[in-house]
């Protein structure tokens, strides 16, 4: 199982793997927002948690269709399906590899990007915690969407349409944690909800992803 994780990370980091894509997109969103809404730092500080969460979510969305599409195109997905690895384990590992190559860089870069949007200092820790807790859910839900659309040519649009509604609860509670943190309020309740969504998705969705993947491989 470790071999699959290592392979996916290695493929993502090597040329053409799209490792920096999400991060670059996140940076572009964060840099362009002040141009769009004006340089008023008080206004920016108010909208920063929401913009940062939205940026992270969209960057995550950008790389979802690569989760299974590449393995499908070169035939490795068929071969992995006949390997001694349970399909549920396969999709969980794929989600984990996606999180490690997309979610973790976003989490680590978020304090820097928060600086660009003049987020209040006390909001940094809640922002990082909310992203660290919420981005795994984005990867797991996204893996489910990718499994649904595997084998479709240009399935990216359908994937976005399927996945975005499922992302809404994560976005609401994630951004709420960051907003409350920035305003110095108690973040306990939205943080608990966010954690619940993430762990619920991690526990249940791999079974759904594995089931649709089996159907799509026929």
């Amino acid at each position: 199982m470790k071999a699959l994780l290592l392979r996916d990370i290695r493929l993502a980091v090597r040329a053409g793997g799209g490792f920096g894509l999400g991060l670059a997109f996140f940076l572009i969103v964060v840099v362009l927002v002040p141009f769009g809404v004006g340089p008023d730092s008080e206004l920016l500080a108010v909208i920063a948690p929401g913009i940062l969460w939205l940026g992270a979510l969209l960057s995550c969305l950008l790389s979802l269709d690569r989760i299974f599409a590449l393995d499908w195109e070169d035939g490795s997905l068929d071969l992995l399906a006949t390997a001694p690895l349970p399909m549920e384990g396969l999709v969980s590992l794929k989600a984990m590899a996606h999180w490690l190559t997309t979610g973790v860089p976003l989490v680590l870069a978020s304090p820097l990007f928060a600086l660009l949007l003049s987020l209040p200092v006390e909001g940094y820790l809640p922002l990082v915690i909310s992203l660290a807790l919420g981005t795994p859910a984005l990867s797991v839900i996204g893996t489910f969407g990718a499994a649904l659309t595997v084998g479709l040519k240009r399935g990216g649009l359908l994937l976005s349409l399927l996945v975005l509604p499922l992302y809404v609860p994560t976005l609401i509670f994630g951004a709420e944690v960051a907003r409350r943190g920035a305003e110095g309020l108690d973040t306990g309740v939205p943080l608990a909800m966010l954690a619940g969504i993430t762990f619920g998705a991690m526990a249940l969705l791999p079974f759904a992803s594995a089931a649709v993947l089996r159907v799509n491989l026929r």
Binding site: D74, D78, L79
Partner: peptide, 18 residues
């Protein structure tokens, strides 16, 4: 059992960057 089978299809499942 499925576990007895090794399958090779039309595509080789090769990763070009490895």
């Amino acid at each position: 059992e499925r576990d007895a089978m090794a399958y090779a299809g039309h595509a080789d499942g090769i990763k070009t960057t490895l």
